[in-house]
Amino acid sequence: MQSSPDLAAGNIYDLGYRRYQGARLGRRQAVLTIYLQSLRAAFGLGRRPAAKIVPVALVVLALFPAALRLGIAAATDQNIRIVEPANYYSYIQILLALFVAAQAPELVGRDLRNNTRPLYFSRAIRRSDYALAKLVALASAMLFMTALPQVVLYVGNAFAGSHVWPEMRDSAPDLPRIAVSAVALSLFMAAVSLAVAAQTSRRAFAAGGIIALFVFSGTVGGVLVEAGSALWNRLGILISLYDVMRGATFWIFATDPEPESQLGRADLPGPLYAALLAALASLALVLLLRRYMRFRP
């Protein structure tokens, strides 16, 4: 109890609350803040330690193929080309899917679960800003899964031999390809997974839905294309999100797939995959935006 000087007088005390008179940073800063906080959340930063295990472990696992190739190069003194930039994503596709399955619900699910969306929407941002900030944040986080291993592989390759500069120069054309493919795949997977995750507040459903989408579509596409060589068998590969990603990547790298692989059997033009990738990402983005535009508290 504070010692009150004079209860009978009935005073209202000035506790020193002050109005905020300074500049307001506005929409841009607000969006940037959501982006940064979401990016941190994608790696469990600022959350309990257990939340960091899965994203960090997946990033480490995604580096495994690069480490493998560099390890072999170090052990044998020969640069055996077993893991190429063009097919790197194929090796880690399940890891990529697991990353978005685990982290997309983390970015949007909490706000759905705790009903905190009105708090955001009553600020100086538009609803689309919220969705886009989340999308770019998850895509940025995905760059650690896509671009980082490629860069490690590129730099490692150069330093593995004795001709550092010639090696770097020779594979320099790969750099823009790595950048474009990594950004494209990251945006695509982020958009698809967020579109699914935003539909449910239950984390398990969201994660299961995302995994099911990637794995199931991949298996079904594979089964169709493996079974025959009719045109519609070959078109069946377009069901597989994995193969759409793979086809677009090969096109970006201007590489032909192995003839015996699923892509080789399908033998469809590269731009088709890239166009479909863009179309599917746009569709996912529309679904995501619609979910937030239509929200009524």
Binding site: A212, V223, A227
Partner: peptide
Amino acid sequence: GSFEEHPADWASNRLMAQIIVAA
């Protein structure tokens, strides 16, 4: 459709093993 694989082959390896049991 026009599948070229043998039905028993396809059903056991693809349909059953890959789609149903694995997914």
